[in-house]
């Protein structure tokens, strides 16, 4: 398959290793992965802050960059959610609709479309705590949220369970928000930080050496919180583990 690699702007700027792991992982499955050079932010921060009309230019550019691929894959739940569920600042032409429908978050793509038997190149002999970003959990439906009385499932857990040597630490509040929330962390600094402290402490009490997530932005926030209160825990994106990091 021909895949357009969509690397969200903050991953490009702060966590390029996550983008690289995503590229390598997709290439391991023999896909033709293309990184359109002109890509920018998809417009999510503007839309979330109530400036939807201001997204028009970034949305149009996104469609120009990612039109014509079999799939567009990104290692970020909130950006994919914006593209697929919002993204209406521009006219909804057939091309726009097509690009939106073909855009997938990495875990979704692997779990629902790639369906790999395993990740034989990966080995991660550590105790990890899975962080379900609240948006990715409830909007992209990565897993069953704990407040619903529905059968259990977890796409990231299914994938991680295929990695050799991995063990899981189960926090007491499995899918509580870590307090990042994009601009929320700026405007509600104290609440955001307190939630981050609580989150990393919960994982540490459960015995996690690493917190793993499909959302780098949550990890960025939690990493800052952990460093500030001295919680000795490491952070890693799910793409890195599945691609064989630490092996």
């Amino acid at each position: 398959m021909r895949i357009g690699l969509f690397i969200p702007c903050y991953i490009d700027a702060f966590f390029p290793e996550v983008g690289i792991a995503t590229l390598e992982l997709l290439e391991r499955f023999n896909h033709e992965v293309v990184y359109p050079r002109d890509q920018t932010c998809c417009g999510q921060p503007m839309a979330n802050s109530g400036f939807n009309a201001d997204c028009a230019a970034t949305e149009a550019l996104f469609v120009r960059n990612f039109s014509g691929f079999d799939y567009v894959v990104a290692p970020s739940g909130s950006c994919v959610h914006h593209v697929r569920e919002n993204f209406d600042a521009i006219e909804q032409s057939a091309e726009v609709k097509e690009v939106r429908a073909r855009t997938f978050e990495l875990v979704e793509f692997l779990h629902d479309i790639q369906k790999p038997e395993g990740f034989p190149w990966a080995r991660f002999p550590h105790r990890v705590g899975l962080h379900n970003s609240c948006g990715t959990l409830r909007r992209l439906k990565h897993a069953r949220p704990s407040e619903l009385n529905e059968p259990y499932f977890s796409k990231p857990m299914d994938l991680l369970s295929k990695v050799d040597g991995i063990q899981f630490a189960m926090p007491a509040r499995p899918d509580e928000c870590c307090g990042f929330g994009g601009t929320f962390s700026v405007f509600e600094e104290v609440v955001s930080t307190k939630m981050g402290y609580d989150k990393v402490s919960d994982h540490a009490r459960a015995g996690a050496e690493y917190i793993v997530s499909a959302d780098t932005s949550c990890l960025m926030h939690q990493q800052g919180c952990a460093e500030r209160i001295g919680v000795p825990i490491k952070f890693i994106h799910i793409a890195q583990i599945l691609n064989g990091a630490g092996a």
Partner: peptide, 13 residues
């Protein structure tokens, strides 16, 4: 009020 007990944002504010 279940939303207020489930989402930690109101729970802490």
């Amino acid at each position: 009020g279940a939303c207020m007990n489930t989402c930690p944002v109101p729970a802490q504010r």
